[in-house]
Design a binder for these strands. Structure first.
Lengths: 209, 209
DNA sequence: GTTTGTTAGTGTACCTGAAACACTAACAGG
DNA sequence: CCTGTTAGTGTTTCAGGTACACTAACAAAC
């Protein structure tokens, strides 16, 4: 007996910080904006396919990426059904990454019309990200190489959609073992300079909290 | 351009309570025990495929089921690669469900040798289940229609692998809105009878805790 | 019928971690 | 030197979780 074969695709919700807000990277396609992604080939596994599509379509490499959920009937409006493995990725803010070759960043609160179910995928990804903020150090994946605690707090507030107490926030993140002072100061703006921190083990997300 | 087609399969980790312990349902296959599951057909979506395989292979219907993760290279030992969408299901204990036509229950601590990566899938499913116990009412999906708080506590302890304080446990679960007294008593054993409870909305899992 | 063994059922004190809260410091620009 | 703006710092309060011991009800054995 021959196994049934199906088209399998990957779709990636790429999050970044733009203009002080959480943003999603979309590509122009078929008269509509759409999530990066595409079909999985024979020679690659689904994780590799997602990384490849990201690199080819957006130029992004070495970003943090996690699997989100696997949907079916994603392309219900087309004749062909597709098994869609979805992922979300986080790119550092203010880095060269945010100036990608193709695609455009949209504030997560103001997305354009998307193909079937993609809006739901973005929503789910955002929920997952917000949940992880509460019990992990995942927000550091959205940070540039050097960052101030003020910016880190702003990112948290942006993703969670709520204001946080400065002192309580600093207490919490300074207890994390995975960030450390650089010794340098951010000298910008007409105000007191802020200490610059960096991540000790980039790419690793600790579950501690 | 023609889309690449791939074999897609579903695999289900079926949890139940047997002999006072957490157990997994396995099927005899190719000289090895194996998780229920199989290929996804054209006419069904992946969720439907998982339900169908469960029904056909084990006789289980109307069980609680959640998607776990999607793997690739699952059948790396075979020539053909497969995209494997994995799920976990919970069946009520002491119900007729636990006497399934085919398959056998194995204590989760003492599983036989399994095909490539399936042991890892079971482990992941168990982690997920344990995590959900802490912030949801999911354990009720493992309960028979009427149950005592003593048994509910035993199920929690079984899954978590730790002992729980009786008074604190009762305080917590009695605050759940989704269980209620039946008014009946469990008259079994040489000891004081216990009150029997039931779920108010079977099948629903509340995130409240 | 009294004793024994076993599980059911109940309330309070303590402790830890989260939340609330206001002022001084350092810089640039006017 | 005054103003505006962000950086940086401790303590008190509150709530939720944890620890903890006895009485109640039944069946079986004696």
């Amino acid at each position: 007996m021959r196994a049934t074969l199906l088209p399998v695709s990957v779709h990636i919700v790429v999050f970044g910080i733009r203009c002080e807000g959480l943003a999603v990277l979309l590509l122009p396609r078929a008269e509509m904006w759409s999530l990066p992604g595409g079909g999985v080939e024979d020679a690659e596994d689904i994780h590799g396919a997602a990384l490849r599509q990201l690199a080819v379509q957006t130029g992004l490499r070495d970003v943090y990426m996690e699997q989100l959920y696997t949907f079916d009937h994603l392309d219900a409006d087309t004749v062909q059904r597709t098994v869609a493995v979805t992922w979300y990725a986080l790119v550092p803010s203010a880095s060269s990454f945010t100036k990608t070759a193709a695609g455009e960043w949209f504030a997560v609160e103001a997305l354009p019309a998307l193909p079937a179910e993609q809006a739901g995928i973005v929503h789910l990804a955002r929920q997952r990200l917000a949940a992880k903020l509460e019990y992990s150090t995942i927000a550091l994946q959205l940070m540039p190489e050097r960052f101030t605690l003020g910016v880190l707090q702003a990112v948290h507030e942006t993703v969670l959609g709520t204001a946080l107490d400065k002192r309580n926030f600093r207490k919490r993140v300074l207890a994390w073992a995975c960030i450390e002072e650089t010794g340098e100061m951010a000298r910008e703006g007409h105000h007191r300079p802020a200490r610059l921190y960096r991540v000790t083990r980039p790419g690793s997300v600790e579950i501690i909290k």
